[in-house]
Structure formats: C-alpha cells, structure tokens
Design a protein around this nucleic acid. Structure first.
Lengths: 297, 297
DNA sequence: GCCTGGTGCTGCATTTTATGCAGCACATTG
DNA sequence: CAATGTGCTGCATAAAATGCAGCACCAGGC
C-alpha cells in the first residue's frame, strides 16, 4: 500500500528514536528519510518530532498523529478483510493478547477450531499481563484481549465476562489433598507459591487476605503458572490458579481443589476489545466463537 | 497531504462516474488517472471499480473502501485540529447540516458568537431536509446536524433534544388573530399553507389530523418557510412553523399564535452527530455551545 | 581542551516514478 | 455504419524520490 509509506516511515523513526537507525531498518539512506519526514511536517503544518542531540522523539502533535496512523492502518486492514469476505473466502488476521492462564489449552483449542473452518485466517498471540494487554489494545498492537481481572477498564469494551473461582493446585500426597473443599486459612498455613503482583490471581489473594488475620508468605513468587503448577510435584506446596488454565488430562499426581467461596470470591475472566472500534470480520467472528465457548463453560 | 492523493483520485472517479471526466476535474490526463487507479487496485488486491461501457462505477469492495476513505480523511482533519489546539489557537472547520427552520436567526447568532471567540474557525452550513441531513452525516459530508423530527435515527447520536411546539403564523388582520390560543380545527377551517412532506412540521400536522375528522387542504404547499411566512401578508391564510424559526423583531403585520397542545403535540428539535464518531475539537465545542443555547430556551 | 562518535541536515547526480501525448480496441447510439 | 465516448497502453518527458558525500552540531571520554 504505497500511500501508507510515509506512515511506515514515521512509525519506524518513532520506534527507532533516530532517523539514521530507522533508515537502516528500512534499507534506505538517512537523507531520503529525513526529507520525507520534513516534507510531511511541512504538509502537516508543523513538526511532529522534536530534534534532540541524540536523535528524535515524537512531540505531542506527533503522538496524536501516531494514534491516527495506528487506527488508519488497522482500519484499512479491516476493510481488506471485509472485501475478501464478500468474495467468498474468509481471510484475515487475528491479533490476541491473552493472560497466561488462558494460554495452555483453552486458547489453542479455540484457535484450532476456528482455523479448521477458515484456514486462510492467521493468528498472532501474545501472552501479556493484564495491564500490558490493555495497553496493547489501545495501541492497536492487538485486536482482542482475554484477561483475568483487568486493571483499568477504560477504553476496554467487554464482549463477554465469566466468573472464575480461584482453585488450589497441590500434590496428591499433600496433607490437604483429601479435603473436597479447602479453606484459605488452611492453605496459607502450609507453604505456598503465588503469582507475582501483576497477575489477577495474586490480586484476588491480596484482596482475600487484607483485613483478615491472614498473611501471604509465599515460598516462591513466580510469573509462570506452568512453573508453579509443576513445582507442587517436587515440594509439598500449594499453588493457586483458575480452572480454565488447567489442562484436562490432569497429571494424576496433581489435585485441583476449589477454595471455599466464602474465603475468596471469584474473579472475572473477560474477553474484550478497544472501545468503539469496529473489528475486522475475522476477528469479530473469532471473538464471538470464544465468547460462546466461555459462556458454555 | 500527499499520501491522500490516491484517495482524492478515487473520490473524483467515483463521483464523476468516469475516469476521463474525473481527470478533467483534477486537471490531469486520463492516462495518469487510469494508471493510478490500476496500481491501487493491484496493491489493494482486487478491483474497486466495475468497468461499464459508459464509464466506471464503484463495486461493493469500492463502496467499503469509500467509507474507509471518508473516515480517514475526516479523522486526519480532526487530528490537525487537535494539534492546532494544543499550539494555543483554536483552528478548524465546522460542517453543519441544519433544517430550514433553524436557519434564519438561531444558527447565524450561534455561529457569530462562536467565531467571535475563535476567529480562525470556519464554517460550512448546508440547509437540508431531515432525511438528507442524516444521510450527509453518514457520508461525512457534515459533522453536525440540527434537525426537526428526524426520520431514521440509526447512526444518529443525539447531543441534545428540545421540544418545539408547532405554532401558527398569520396576518394581524386575520379573523383568528384575536385569539390567544388557536385550535387546530379552526386553523384548518381557514385557508392554510403547509410545508412539503419532507419537513417535520408537515409530519406533525399529518399525525395530528390522521384519524380525526380533520383534513389538510393546503392552498399552497411549499418547501420554503421564508416564503410561507411572507405569504400570509398577501392573503388571509394560516401558516405553520416552530418558534425557533421566527425572527424576533417580528413584522408588526404578523402574528404568531400557539396551537392548543391537545390538538397537536410538540416535535423534537435535535442536534446530533454520527454515532461513535470522535468530533474535531472545534466542532465538539460548537456542538456544546449550541446544545447549551438550545437547553436555555 | 580536544578528539570521537553519534546526530540531523543539505547540494548534487542518479534512479525511479508519475505524467502527458497520441493512438488503440471496444461499445453504444443515431 | 459512421460518430462519439469509454478505458487502456507504448513511448517520451517531467517530476519526485533516493543515494552519495560532506556539513554543522552536540555529548561523552581521555
């Protein structure tokens, strides 16, 4: 798309923070790039970069323009998807940010199901913590986000929400493994591992302990649910996560136990998009499929 | 804005319905235009126009693209307005479609008031019937619409609504001129002039007469409120319009009389925009000013 | 204080792209 | 069946973008 070339240039320069480096990235000379930027600024009616001794940086006007560029590019993609759609075959690209909890099985299964029906649709999936996932949406880095207990919710438009209780993961040989429902107090009395602060499960744990005579004293704090799940096999610790993240053919040495809802309330797993955006056809359809799948659980 | 040139070309071709004529409009040769269109179609991934023996016409893909083009152009304008805004001076352009009734004094006064505060803001005002006003919004021909009794209301986002009763305009020498409040039946018993069907006042009159033993028998049906208002000076007829359209230093030979609300309900005068759009700064401010002025009445 | 390495910018030659001119094939119309 | 109007295309030219080399500037290190 030739007319987007100047935008591409601006994006490269903004990202590289230097015209010369951006020029290298694009395999052109810096003089060509400099002049294109200058010409654009002249047409635009003012500078969009501020010149620093060590390079350039977007000024406020540039930031505004950058937002416009992002929407423009993404919208054009959407139009092309729609066009491909009315010529029969669904084509397109779906960019998702999802929390780690959703990663292991739910999302792969849904993507596979969708791609079986529409093989020409491609996907990009980024595992992000909830704050970053929302930020990506705003910058059009992704079209869809699946997050647990989102942080800001401004500009986040919920497509579907489902409750997810926090469950305990422990070894079958753990002293508490025999109980059907665990009390949070009992869990915390044993050695436990918890997710790091940027995750929703941790947030719920903090909320549940705050004000009561409960304290988190994690032996391990990690940002990998996979790691924490595995770790309980090596030491008698209790790990926490949400049911959707548990791979169904559960390792027989593992036990998943719900925690008494009176101790810790459920969190919300949300699928959503940037507020007010019109999603590409492929993305919208996929969102609907995922929403239905979530609702059916 | 050089990168919008191809869009400009497409717009011209779509409007002219012929590449050669569009080329003339743009003062270039048809060959140049042909090739640009072809190049774009190749990049886009498919034809945008269907070639007919007598010219070209947008195909469905082209229609989709056209919508994209309109939003992008208008959005870029918005960004430039915002940028001008943060450099201190408010600049921009406000495009309004308004119904004829609002035309004579209300709108000029508001525009003048706004321009006094922000002299660098320019205006374009189109007088449109209510259906056309809504259509213009959708095609980004205007940013704002002030309409009486809108038709569709899909994609129309109301900024403010005020009730406007229908009033009778008649000569001071008219037999009914002595009454403070007129009954619709009495009005229609006398010769009367009514607006043509595309106007909201007519719509309300139709609604008020339907089902009752009342009939419209206009001696004149016109699409100019100005004309109808003037006409009552030459013949003893009754004309109808809404208060906001009446110029305050009323001609002493004219009388405005309310019609009994039991006979004919008030209509809604709405100011609104295209649903979901982010208005340019200047336009948003002006809309707010007008909304406040309407609310204060 | 003076290099060194980095920045953005600019004059000139070159390459690439866009445009204009003339003419083609085709379809509709009188 | 000619006349008119359409989109399209080969070739020459005009315009724009790019590459090359070098400028002035600034921060950091010796």
């Amino acid at each position: 798309m030739r007319h987007l070339r100047i935008f591409e240039m601006i994006r490269h320069v903004a990202r590289a923070g230097s015209i010369r480096r951006a020029a290298e990235d694009m395999n052109i000379t810096s003089s060509a790039l400099t002049r294109q930027i200058q010409r654009f600024e002249a047409e635009f009616g003012g500078p969009i970069f501020e010149r620093l001794p060590k390079g350039v940086r977007l000024n406020p006007a540039g930031e505004l323009l950058m937002q416009h560029i992002r929407t423009q590019v993404s919208d054009l993609e959407r139009v092309r998807g729609q066009v491909a759609d009315l010529s029969g075959e669904r084509r397109g690209h779906v960019a998702i940010a999802c929390s780690q909890a959703v990663n292991p099985i739910f999302l792969p299964r849904e993507v596979a199901r969708y791609r079986k029906a529409h093989p020409r649709v491609t996907f990009s999936i980024r595992v992000r913590d909830r704050a970053q996932a929302e930020r990506d949406l705003g910058q059009f880095a992704t079209d869809l986000a699946i997050v647990f207990e989102p942080v800001y919710l401004v500009d986040f438009e919920v497509i579907r929400a489902v409750e997810q209780p926090v469950a305990a993961v422990l070894s079958a040989s753990h002293p508490l493994a025999g109980q059907e429902i665990l009390r949070l107090r009992d869990c915390l009395a044993h050695p436990h591992v918890v997710p790091s602060v940027e995750y929703g499960v941790r947030h719920l744990l903090e909320k549940a302990t705050r004000g009561r005579s409960l304290n988190l004293n994690p032996v391990i704090e990690a940002d990998s649910f996979e790691l924490m799940r595995q770790y309980v096999l090596y030491e008698d610790v209790i790990s926490f996560q949400i049911p959707i993240g548990v791979v169904p053919p559960v390792d027989p040495r593992l036990v998943i136990r719900p925690i008494d809802p009176a101790d810790i309330g459920p969190g919300l797993l949300l699928i959503g998009q940037l507020r007010g955006r019109t999603l590409p056809v492929a993305t919208a359809k996929f969102a609907q499929q995922v929403a239905d799948a979530l609702g059916a659980r």
